[in-house]
């Protein structure tokens, strides 16, 4: 068993690009769910807005990739309005249903043959990210060179995305932190507790919920952009339901309604995930047998890993519902 390889990969999982795009999307979900109490189960839809905003600059508009950033944000604001207008006046559950459906509709539309001209169908789009790479080369992080020391060894290509990614995490984390410390954030937290009380004090609850939904959606969009830039590809099936739920898991792991929770949660999530994956692959290198019965071989590692992630979430909910950073005292006031 190669422990040093397992260790190296785990560390990379901890600070890797997966943790980055999860963290940004989790920040968005935190604004919506953690602070405002809006159940958005369609964060993947917002991420798709960002990814396709970038992708469509090459596929359809044939303009510079940088235009994709405002384009993606416009998409996500549109999506937020579309989902919010009919549902935000209703109970929270309706938003959950609509968001999960909307995200699936987006995925099915962008992968359809009918709209292949715009979105590239199920092949996706993969010729848009050169400007981003060029910028990296220009600032002196060469794509092909290897940087760092063991166990932190990255290609220039990975490093450039990571630097931009973590800078964005820090910036957006600070942004959300400042907002939630402001009177604006106070109104959101109050809406999470009881929206009638907030309305009676003269706040336009509907407008605040819409602002929260859109702000969280824009964060999801930025996450989708980082993801697309890292892969240098936009694939419709990367934006399916399970992505939203993994991000939610990572958020709950870190602790909701905490900025630190939505950043560290994804890091721990990917750290554990990568560790288990690497560890079990080493273990199952030779198929494990009991007598003639084959218990496990390397093809079982993926599914088993997801089972273990699910188990982790269950154990977390039972033994530490407030997550890593949550406040137990705060949780105790849930029963109203």
């Amino acid at each position: 068993m190669d422990w040093s390889l397992i260790f190296e990969n785990t560390l990379k999982g901890f600070i890797g690009i997966n943790a980055v795009y999860f963290a940004i999307a989790a920040l968005g979900l935190n604004v919506q769910f953690g602070y405002t109490g809006l159940l958005n189960f369609g964060q993947a839809g917002f991420m798709a807005c960002g990814a396709y905003g970038l992708g469509m600059t090459a596929q359809y508009f044939e303009i510079s990739m940088w235009w994709g950033i405002p384009l993606g944000i416009v998409f996500s604001v549109g999506l937020g309005l579309l989902m919010g207008i009919p549902t935000l006046r209703l109970r929270a559950d309706y938003l959950a249903i609509v968001t999960i459906a909307a995200a699936e509709i987006i995925r099915l539309v962008v992968r359809s043959v009918r709209f292949k001209h715009y979105f590239g169908g199920s092949d996706g789009i993969n010729n848009f990210s050169q400007s981003f790479r060029d910028l990296g080369n220009k600032v002196g992080i060469d794509e092909a060179t290897r940087y760092g020391f063991s166990p932190f060894r990255f290609t220039g290509r990975e490093l450039w995305t990571l630097i931009i990614g973590w800078l964005l995490v820090a910036l957006l984390g600070f942004f959300v932190y400042k907002l939630m410390k402001s009177p604006w954030g106070r109104v959101l937290k109050a809406i999470r507790e009881d929206e009638d009380a907030v309305r009676s004090l003269g706040k336009n609850v509907y407008s605040y919920k819409m602002q929260s939904l859109i702000l969280g959606g824009i964060l999801g969009t930025i996450s989708g952009m980082i993801f697309a830039l890292d892969r240098a590809a936009v694939q419709p099936d990367n934006y399916s339901r399970d992505v939203t739920f993994y991000i939610l898991t990572a958020l709950v792991l870190g602790g909701v309604a905490r900025v630190s929770g939505s950043i560290v949660g994804p890091m721990i999530f990917w750290g554990i995930f990568t560790f288990l994956d690497n560890f079990m692959r080493e273990v199952a290198d030779d198929p494990i047998r009991i007598g003639n019965f084959q218990v496990m071989d390397s093809t079982d590692v993926g599914p088993l890993n997801f089972i273990l992630i699910g188990l982790t979430l269950i154990l977390l909910m039972v033994f530490r519902p407030q997550g890593v950073f949550g406040d137990r005292k705060e949780m105790a006031f849930d029963g109203r």
Binding site: S182, R186, A190, L201
Partner: peptide
């Protein structure tokens, strides 16, 4: 504090700038 009306900081664009 939530009860006070007409708070400037309750606009998100002001929220960022304490």
């Amino acid at each position: 504090r939530l009860g006070a009306t007409g708070q400037r900081g309750e606009k998100w664009w002001n929220g960022l700038f304490s």
